[in-house]
């Protein structure tokens, strides 16, 4: 068990466990990976990388998906 970390997810602080991956975070948040784009510290991640990129203290994660809108 690694030391707890604090990350930012969609602008909100979140206490999280060190060493966990982006895929772990999505699972914890009940978000389907195939429906979202993830930006880690301004870098857009390939979906294939979700399970490999682990998060560290101070990381900023943005999780985005499609919503209603457009040519309002």
């Amino acid at each position: 068990m690694q030391a707890p970390i604090r990350i930012q997810v969609n602008g909100e602080a979140k206490d999280w466990r060190g060493g966990a991956t982006v895929a772990d975070l999505l699972r914890e948040l009940d978000i389907k990976a195939e429906r979202v784009a993830v930006e880690l510290n301004l870098e857009i991640l390939d979906r294939a990388m979700f399970g490999q990129r682990s998060l560290k203290d101070g990381d900023r994660v943005e999780i985005l998906s499609f919503i209603g809108g457009g040519s309002f």
């Binding site: 948040l29 009940d30 978000i31 943005e62 999780i63 985005l64 499609f66 919503i67 809108g69 457009g70």
Partner: peptide, 12 residues
């Protein structure tokens, strides 16, 4: 057409 926005992580 759809927009791209942050997922609501507090209300799933």
């Amino acid at each position: 057409t759809v927009a791209v926005r942050r997922v609501n992580i507090t209300d799933r």
